[in-house]
Write a protein that binds this DNA or RNA. Structure first.
Lengths: 358, 358
DNA sequence: CTGTTAGCGCATTCAA
DNA sequence: TTGAATGCGCTAACAG
């Protein structure tokens, strides 16, 4: 299947590699000429074989292979108005939970013949808006965003284009189009309830300057207050989320004179940082300080002690985003407009029942 | 700058969101009509303002904003033969060193007005070749590959298209175009020398079924043999590389009756797995078993004990790939055809000088 | 500084 | 089953 291409070298000009000249491309017309057919027949033989006699298909394939023909999808998409391109914007890629979502998204897209145009917003809505302009000009068949809050006007602009959009990692009753994620609020509440149940009363937070992380934190605090507990300290960390921010966070909280019983972190990466800082300061975890993470990263189960966290099926978000988009693009009934992938609180050894002196 | 768009709602048909119909797009011609100009002037006002009178530019911008005009880059690229699109293929995204390279690549591309088309090969050369066909049809201005070994014919095909190509994470005197990475062989040798210097004599490997990892392993073994040391055991792990593969690897090696003094892993992820398995089996690291990783992941410095590793500037590979590509695309002199980003052996606590009973 | 003409490479529509 | 004509939306090349 690939070998016929091997003698294309005779046909093509021997260009000096490294020189800038792009060889003029071989088009459908060239293949048609070689095969003694019209361009449209070649097009059909390649993309719509049912409409063409087997003989002809063979002739076309041979000619195409012999010439090393590469279809120009820009031209194709220009007429069909279908690009088979899905664009995605994530806040961060390295050191983040989004890498797994992107991998899932890409795997599923790839399996269906779509390709992924990836951008990174660095947690900036303005950047997201700018990226969107560039993205839309490539006529994607679908768009995957992270989060449900965007720059003013973005929703309207997206709606106006009619491109299917999936918002991920969060939930809302009124998505632009489709939302796939989980409730930040329910996580905040659940974590609060869990830790209160363990007997913790003095809470601190290390929270990334990220809208979703912050909503989890606020929901946690609201739930605490319902139970008469007032959080003692919050340290905000500016993304990108790296381990050291967790260390700095705990250091700052302690330096300010706070003595939390437990510190809730908006990411396992920060939690690991806090854990390391605690150990560096000779603070026993969980005996003297509890630590709660988020995301259930692979390493969370293997730190010493392992980090209690909130598990999110990061890959599923990507896979389902791809499926929803493809379903919509291909006119099939989507699985629903708002998909809750849920979450699961995972208790490990950085939190434990508090025993207090009476 | 964005507010003029806000009253586009009057101009656009109120389409029911969720319905499938894509509103017919607003073209340059529409904007030209509204502005009372020719399409080409509008085009110039938007992309080549120097050629147009300030007045006119203002008129054009106003009209474009009022209509919510979104340029169609497919059409534009079709004529200019410039797509401002860079395609990249990585073996894996989650749990991998490549996420950082992709982030660096994307950041640098984005800063120069390029966008990233990302694909994942799952360590399969066949998949790489297939992806390449799809990629080429989108007329990218440049391509970033991982590794220097490809399916037969790939090199020739790429050369025939004339698209600038960067091969990353490895080095070769004869790249397709540009190579940016480091020498697997020198790493294997260096690691061997380092561990031999520490007194280790009984070596085992846990190695991903990945061509580069394997070459590092072979180079290590060659260097060992030069010093009269024969490795005792090798366990091959099939990607994707996840922590548990490291556990299984060490378990298998020990179960086979081998008693290595040190186990060399092709990734810190595997090394962490091996570390955890050792601890689970009550084997003291580094006292009874040394462990050597690769990649110097963020977590490597923070495991217990921290993992000795080989540091690679993962992000720099991406950034320099972007720069080289852009330089070449824009006709500027590239920094060189083969760029060695080097590596650094980082000694931590999973390896230490061996003291042997006489 | 602005406009006219032409064509990028392909697939849709209609015809044979 | 195959082909001819046409246009997708834009910009290069050449006027003026």
């Amino acid at each position: 299947m690939t070998s016929p291409l091997d003698h294309d070298h005779d046909t093509l000009p021997d260009d000096v590699p490294g020189a800038g000249e792009r060889p003029k491309s071989i088009t459908l017309k060239d293949v048609a000429r070689l095969a003694g057919l019209s361009p449209i027949t070649v097009s059909r033989a390649l993309h719509n074989p049912k409409l063409v006699k087997p003989d002809t298909i063979a002739r076309v394939k041979e000619a195409a292979a012999a010439m090393g023909y590469i279809p120009n999808m820009l031209a194709g998409s220009l007429t069909t108005k279908r690009s088979r391109l899905i664009a995605a914007i994530v806040p961060q890629l390295s050191n983040s939970m989004f890498a797994e979502t992107v991998q899932g998204l890409n795997d599923e897209l790839s399996a269906h013949g779509y390709q992924l145009l990836l951008s990174v917003s660095n947690y900036s809505r303005q950047k997201e808006e700018d990226l969107l302009a560039a993205i839309l000009s490539r006529q994607p068949d679908g768009i995957v965003l992270t989060g449900i809050h965007h720059q003013p006007g973005v929703r309207k602009k997206l709606l106006a284009t009619g491109v299917p959009v999936v918002e991920t990692w969060d939930l809302t009753p009124s998505p632009i189009d489709i939302a796939i994620g989980f409730s930040q609020e329910r996580i905040g509440e659940k974590v609060a309830q869990y830790l209160l149940g363990k007997g913790y009363r003095r809470f601190a937070s290390i929270c990334a300057r990220d809208e979703r992380a912050n909503r989890r934190r606020l929901a946690l605090e609201a739930e605490l207050r319902l139970h008469g507990v007032e959080p003692v300290a919050t340290h905000m960390a500016t993304p990108p989320t790296v381990l050291n921010l967790g260390r700095e966070g705990l250091r700052a909280i302690l330096a300010a004179g706070h003595a939390p019983e437990v510190v809730v972190c908006s990411s396992d990466v920060l939690a690991q940082g806090a854990l390391i800082e605690a150990q560096a300061q000779g603070i026993a975890v969980p005996q003297q300080l509890g630590i709660m993470g988020f995301g259930d990263f692979d390493f969370a189960a293997y730190t010493h002690p392992p980090i209690s966290s909130v598990h999110i099926d990061k890959r599923a978000i990507g896979v389902r985003a791809a499926r929803s988009l493809i379903a919509k693009i291909e006119g099939r009934p989507p699985a629903g407009n708002v998909i809750d992938v849920g979450f699961e609180l995972v208790e490990r050894a950085t939190t434990r029942t508090i025993v207090r002196q009476p």
